[in-house]
Simulated scan of single mutants.
Amino acid sequence: MASVNAAAIRAADTLLRGVGGRQVLLRTPAPAIPNDDGEQLGLSTPQFQDFPITPVIYRRIRPRLPSSVAATQSPAPQYELLISATAVNALIGSQEYNSAAKLFNTACGILIDGVLLNIESANYSELGGAAYLYRLLLRAPQALRT
């Protein structure tokens, strides 16, 4: 079954690259390091780390409206990010997370073209008990919603 999963991972990687796969940045909090310059009251300035993830597919999706929402109301735009399991597994190993769920729950968001998008949900497709493709549902910050 491992060879079937490896084939699914290779197929997903090829598909993501073939349809214009791009690179995005996963922003995570960095450990706070005390610094004497400019810190007061013993509080450390929050730091962040950006990790490149490739190949991914990024696209805008139409949110489904509940029947109770009037047609005149425009919901906030949502985006979908399809990520290679190869990239996620490499990041999990290098940053010592124990699962992709922990990685995405800890992350501050995804940085795409200079805009930090919030991760609303993360799920995956699996074959043989192992993930080969991750799907993140993203939402733009309130200030950028139209």
Rank of each mutant, 00 (worst) to 15 (best):
N123T: 08
S67H: 04
S125M: 14
L26A: 01
R64I: 08
R59Q: 13
Q49C: 04
Q40I: 09
S68K: 00
L133H: 00
A2K: 08
A140F: 00
S125F: 13
D36E: 09
P46A: 05
E39T: 06
N89K: 04
I83D: 00
I92L: 09
T14Y: 10
Y79Q: 09
L43T: 12
A70M: 04
P75I: 01
L41W: 09
F48L: 03
M1Q: 11
L25H: 10
A32M: 05
M1A: 12
S125Y: 12
T28I: 13
E39F: 06
Q78L: 09
D37T: 02
D13K: 03
R139P: 04
S125L: 14
L81W: 02
V56T: 12
A70G: 05
T54W: 09
Y79F: 15
T28S: 14
V24P: 07
I9G: 05
S121D: 15
S74W: 02
S84K: 00
P75A: 00
R139G: 04
R62V: 03
R62H: 03
A2N: 15
A107Q: 05
R64A: 02
R17C: 03
A87R: 01
L111A: 05
T146N: 06
N98Q: 13
S125D: 15
N35C: 07
L15S: 08
V69S: 11
L81Q: 04
Y134D: 11
R59I: 02
